[in-house]
Design a protein around this nucleic acid. Structure first.
Lengths: 215, 215
DNA sequence: CGATGATTTCAACATGTGTTGAATATTTTC
DNA sequence: GAAAATATTCAACACATGTTGAAATCATCG
């Protein structure tokens, strides 16, 4: 009755938080329900009561913030289109794609770091991870790709898709925050430096697009 | 005595092949030794006899081709430097970095696809995956980064490292061959199209480097 | 051949897994 | 405040896991 190990949040939410963090760190099969329950200070059976099977718990953790992220990104795209009078350039589109992610990471009241790592894990995963990406993120991504096609009207769609693929790879590795850049740069750069990571990624990717897609 | 389910290869090798494929597909924790043994047509205990613990088997599968890959890539870098009289440009360096990977995938006598997916998995993984990357790939990568620093002598090292990070992300997602581009492009592009994947990645990345690192 | 050593299988153990149903506590409703 | 509903814990099952040691098979070579 004296201590409160956590700032008080409902147990259901605590389970999701623990699942998010542990799944992001070790993957679906690398985490047991008992580890999640322990981290959430909760009995094992409670996860089953609230979310059903383990797979469903994973999806619940994945879904929780997906809609939020999609909403803010869609608005970001719409604003960029409005600002450019319906014809945004590559840099505008890529900025609209990445800035919301950067911003959420910077306002870390709610900590998006774990969730980002979870998305990176899912995007790097095989069949069933791909199904989740397709279901929950591809609709929005398609809108970005449409915008890019419009920005390069004379470029074959194939090239646009490959360029987006490269951008998606850079983003995914950034979201994962594996710390590899820290080691390779001997501490000069930090995976957690969200500011510079996206500030440089935008012009980098934009230049890549222009090189491949002409103009 | 009549059928030979596999083209005959020693069982030890068959275990490594099965481990490579299954680990690449489902990750370390997503695969059981029994699944590996079954795929290799071998008893479970044999993996332990040859490789020790499960972790050691994983590392053995990872190591098997790492040295080969490092050798061919180092030679590729040295040749590029020689060809450019000691001062290769970005495009030369990135080409030397990516072409060997592309080439090995194209000559698929030995199928490198599974191994590439395994590397992608390791590079996307947390602490212990990073240790493997650091130990077995970073020494060579550092040489590429040194070459890049020399190609942009006036650019702060920080920017070089971030640009390499973006390139590494694009490469990793390409190696993973998740099939996401197939779905996003509605079949127009294929993850398995190694030719175009790298042919476009090189100028894309080179343009990104030039944009960020000047010149 | 016979014997020595490497390979491969067999059987099993100890432990950990996801999941479940009944029991208890807590909150809500009337 | 009793009753109904929700949330949480407890105990346990059926099964799969990595790993091991002792057998059995195979190859090597005098």
């Amino acid at each position: 009755m004296s201590e409160q190990e956590n700032t008080f949040t409902p147990k259901r939410e605590r389970i999701l938080d623990a699942a998010e963090e542990l799944f992001a760190l070790h993957g679906f099969d690398g985490v047991t329900l008992r580890q999640i329950a322990k981290k959430a200070n909760v009995d094992v059976a409670l996860a089953n009561y609230h979310f059903g099977k383990k797979q469903d718990l994973f999806e619940a953790a994945f879904l929780r913030r997906a809609q939020v992220l999609n909403d803010v990104r869609l608005q970001s795209l719409l604003e960029a289109e409005k600002r450019a009078g319906g014809n945004p350039g590559v840099e505008d589109i890529i900025g609209a794609f990445l800035r919301p992610i950067q911003q959420l990471a910077l306002d870390d009241e709610q900590n998006w770091r774990n969730y980002y790592a979870l998305v990176a894990y899912v995007n790097s995963s095989a069949v069933w991870g791909q199904m989740m990406m397709h279901k929950h993120f591809d609709p929005l991504v398609s809108r970005y790709i449409e915008a890019l096609k419009k920005a390069f009207p004379d470029t074959p769609a194939e090239k646009i898709h490959w360029c987006y693929h490269y951008l998606s790879g850079a983003l995914t590795l950034t979201l994962a925050q594996t710390g590899r850049i820290d080691r390779l740069s001997d501490g000069l750069c930090k995976s957690t430096d969200v500011r510079i990571a996206y500030d440089l990624m935008i012009p980098y990717a934009a230049a890549g697009f222009r090189e491949i897609c002409g103009k």
